[in-house]
């Protein structure tokens, strides 16, 4: 507790650069790096532990259970589980991707001076759309687009536009006006100000919206099998139909583990993309 605790008076020290003696290091009131890392990343470290434990439990449960022919067949990795997992992920990723491609540009547009007026009505429509149960939306999409994974993807895209759109708008609007003013005052064009100032500063909020959408999508993808879209929901369905607890538990467990994993990866991406200095 000697010199570095002196956080005061940097301007004076700055006035005489040569006095940058060994004492007041640039790090002022920071905790030791190790502590900070663990504290701020606690969630990122605990999640994989839970996921691995869960996976081991599922495996252990599978091995200790008496398995009949239908069990073996329903839980066959190459035949069922792996393709279902792939479908599940691809539904999740495509719908999230489309959501981003639609909602982020729309959000940007609705925060530009010319279109600001439209922001309120469009958000209102999106919000009331959110009130439709996702399942209902899925059925409606089925009635309209027919069977198959793409129906699910479009339904989910529609369903998750709202959180991303709302967060994009909020994220852009919360950017400090004086920062933009300073940038424009220095000669940044409108689009430079958007790309170099507004969007980077809105990234944390936008990413939070995208992560919400991703989590919704990965959960909803479990319902895709109802309209012939595949996904891990199929195994859950099989478990119910066959009245086999092992199949049911394994399907539900895997769905949960996939959701947790996706959220964990999203959290890492969110952390990585967050601009430093915020």
């Amino acid at each position: 507790m000697s010199a570095p605790t002196r956080t005061a008076d940097p301007p004076a020290a700055a006035g005489r650069p040569e006095s940058a003696a060994p004492g007041p290091a640039p790090t002022t009131t920071r905790r030791p790096p190790g502590v900070r890392l663990i504290k701020s990343n606690a969630g990122l470290i605990i999640s994989p532990a839970i996921i691995i434990t869960g996976a081991l439990l599922l495996l252990w449960n599978y091995n200790r259970s008496d398995r009949i022919f239908q069990d073996e067949r329903a839980l066959d990795w190459e035949r069922n589980l792996r393709p279902q997992l792939e479908q599940h992920l691809s539904i999740t990723l495509w719908s999230t991707l489309f959501t981003i491609l639609i909602a982020v540009p729309l959000g940007i547009m609705l925060t530009r001076p010319g279109y600001k007026r439209l922001g309120g009505p469009i958000l209102a429509v999106a919000t009331s759309g959110q009130a439709i149960p996702a399942f209902g939306l899925l059925i409606l999409a089925f009635a309209w687009l027919g069977r198959g994974p793409w129906t699910t993807i479009w339904a989910l895209t529609l369903f998750t536009i709202l959180p991303v759109l709302r967060n994009t708008i909020v994220g852009l609007e919360q950017v400090n006006q004086s920062v933009i003013e300073a940038g424009r005052g220095m000669g940044l064009t409108k689009s430079q100000a958007l790309r170099e100032i507004e969007l980077p500063l809105a990234v944390p909020v936008i990413l939070a919206g995208i992560r919400t959408a991703l989590v919704i999508n990965v959960g909803m993808a479990a319902l895709a099998y109802l309209i012939g879209g595949g996904g891990l929901g199929a195994t859950i369905g099989a478990g119910i139909q066959l009245r086999r607890d092992l199949v049911l538990i394994t399907g539900a467990g895997m769905t949960a583990l996939v959701a947790l994993s996706v959220d964990w990866i999203a959290a890492i991406i969110e952390k990585g993309l967050r601009p430093r200095g915020l």
């Binding site: 400090n176 300073a182 220095m186 000669g187 430093r276 200095g277």
Partner: peptide, 22 residues
């Protein structure tokens, strides 16, 4: 105006440093 502004320094009361840049 963008080209004009690059020839004129501008300091505002709120300073407006870009928080995400060094």
């Amino acid at each position: 105006p963008d080209l004009l502004r690059r020839r004129i320094g501008y300091v505002i009361q709120q300073i407006g440093l870009f928080p995400h840049q060094t």
